[in-house]
Design a protein around this nucleic acid. Structure first.
Lengths: 235, 235
DNA sequence: TAACAATTTTGGTCATACCAAATAAACCAA
DNA sequence: TTGGTTTATTTGGTATGACCAAAATTGTTA
C-alpha cells in the first residue's frame, strides 16, 4: 500500500494511517484520539514517534490538541484550512508591503464579489444584505457594535456565491487584519461614512448595476486603506 | 477568536524565539539550524522538547527538514504559505463538491483577473501575455509542451496585478488541481480549442474590453470544467 | 590537488522514569 | 436514586540516557 521513497520518518506512516481513518470517518469528528500508549502498541513504535505523529496531525489541523487534554479529531473544513495559514501569514504581514499586498487582494476579491452580487444575487441574498445594512445603520453610535455589523455586512457579501470557500476567505481576512483594524480610533463620524458606503454598495447591487457596485466597493475599501495608512504610516 | 495560552507547552517558547530569530534575520535564510544538542543547552530543555519545537517549525514552513539532514532555515514567502495548505486541501478535495468549490473560486478569480488586465495591464504585461500565447500556439501539436505553455499563459495573467500573492495563488491552484488535470486525455484537437480560447482572452485584453475578457475567460474555464466532468463524472 | 579513508557530529528511534493535570471510579450524604 | 465529594487511575508533558546509521568533517594518501 505504501511505497516509501525515503524511509526516514517512521511517523509518516502513522500520520497517513490516522489521516485516512479520519477522512473515512473511522475516527469520527469530535471523538478523542486513542491514548498515545495504545497507539504505540497498535503501530509497534515508541512513544517518541507517536508523539511526533500526533504533533504533525495537530499542525495539519486534523486534530485539536489542547495541552494536557486528549487530542480531539477535527475533520477539517475550509475554515481550518485558512487557520493553518495563520502563523506564516503573520510573518508575511510583518514584512514591508505585506499588509498592503494582502489588503489589495481583499479589495480585488470583494470588488469581484460586489459585481457578482449585482449580477446574480437572488432575492433572499439581497434581503439578507439589506438586513445587515440596517443593523449597520442602527449601530452607528455604538462603535463596538458597528464594528461587528460592519463585519457582518461584508460577510453577507461573501455568502452570496454559495461557495463555502468564500466565507472562509473572509474569516481569514478579518482575523489576519484585525490587529491593524482594532488599533484604529473608532469615530462615530467615520461610522457614518462607512455606513453610507455600505448603503451605496447595497443600492448598486439592488439596481443590478455591476459597475456601480464594484466602484462603490473599491472606493469604500480604498478609503479604509487610507485610514490605515494615516494611522500607521507606511507599512 | 480565542487564543488559548494555556502555557502548557515548553516547546512554544522555543518555537516563538526561533521564529523571531528567523524573521529578524538573525538566523539567515538557507542557514542550517543549530544542532538539537546545542539548542538543549541554549534553552535549558530536553531534546524531547527541542525536537518538538523543530517539528512545529517545520510544519509551519519556517524550516525545511529533510530526513537525517540539518534543518535549513526558510524565510517563508507567499508560496510557502499556500504550500502549508496542501494536506488539508487534499482532504477537502476528496469530499463531495470539493473540487467544484475550488474550481469555482478559480473561475471567479481569473475572471476578475481578466477584467483587471483589460483595464489596467501595461504594455509590458500585454507583451508578456502575447509571448505566452504565441508559445502556446506553437505547442498545439505537442500535448506535453502545450500543458506547460497553458499553465504559463494563465501564470502571466496572475502576474499582471504585480501583487506576489496572485502568482502564489495560481501555483497553489495548479498543484492542487493537477491530479485531476493530468489524468485527462490529451487531444490535439482540444489543444486547438484551448489555444483559441486563450487567443480570445488576449484579444479582449488588448482591446481593453473588460466584459469581453471576463466572458471569454469564463467560457474557457467553464469548458475545462465540463471536460473534467465528462472525464470523472460527478465529483 | 583531488580522491579516498577514518573520525566525529548529528538526527532518528527506543526504553524508562517521574510528575501533574485530567479523567474515571468509588464513596457518601441528602 | 441522586448529586456532589473524595480517591484512584489514566494520560499527556518532560527529562535522561543510550544506540544506530547517515551526514558532515577531518585526515591521509596517491
Amino acid at each position: 500500500m505504501h511505497s516509501h521513497k525515503d524511509a526516514g520518518r517512521a511517523a509518516d506512516l502513522v500520520v497517513e494511517t490516522l489521516a485516512q481513518k479520519i477522512q473515512d470517518g473511522e475516527l469520527a469528528d469530535g471523538q478523542p484520539l486513542p491514548p498515545e500508549r495504545d497507539l504505540m502498541q497498535e503501530f509497534g513504535i515508541s512513544r517518541t514517534v507517536v508523539r511526533e505523529a500526533v504533533l504533525a496531525l495537530s499542525n495539519k489541523g486534523l486534530i485539536e490538541a489542547r495541552p494536557r487534554h486528549r487530542p480531539v479529531v477535527r475533520k477539517p473544513g475550509y475554515d481550518a484550512a485558512f487557520a493553518a495559514l495563520e502563523s506564516i501569514v503573520t510573518h508575511l504581514l510583518h514584512e514591508p508591503g505585506g499588509v498592503k499586498n494582502l489588503f489589495d487582494t481583499r479589495i480585488f476579491i470583494e470588488a469581484a464579489l460586489a459585481r457578482e452580487a449585482a449580477k446574480h444575487a437572488d432575492k433572499g441574498a439581497i434581503f439578507t444584505l439589506k438586513g445587515a445594512l440596517e443593523a449597520n445603520r442602527l449601530a452607528i453610535n455604538d462603535s463596538e457594535a458597528f464594528y461587528q455589523t460592519d463585519i457582518a455586512f461584508h460577510q453577507a457579501l461573501y455568502a452570496i456565491p454559495r461557495n463555502p470557500v468564500f466565507p472562509a476567505i473572509n474569516k481569514a481576512y478579518t482575523s489576519w487584519l484585525a490587529p491593524q483594524w482594532s488599533q484604529m480610533p473608532r469615530l462615530p463620524q467615520r461610522n457614518q461614512t462607512n455606513y453610507e458606503a455600505h448603503a451605496e454598495i447595497y443600492e448598486a447591487i439592488l439596481m443590478r448595476d455591476p459597475d456601480a457596485a464594484e466602484t462603490a466597493l473599491r472606493k469604500h475599501l480604498s478609503s479604509a486603506w487610507q485610514q490605515v495608512r494615516t494611522t500607521f504610516g507606511d507599512i
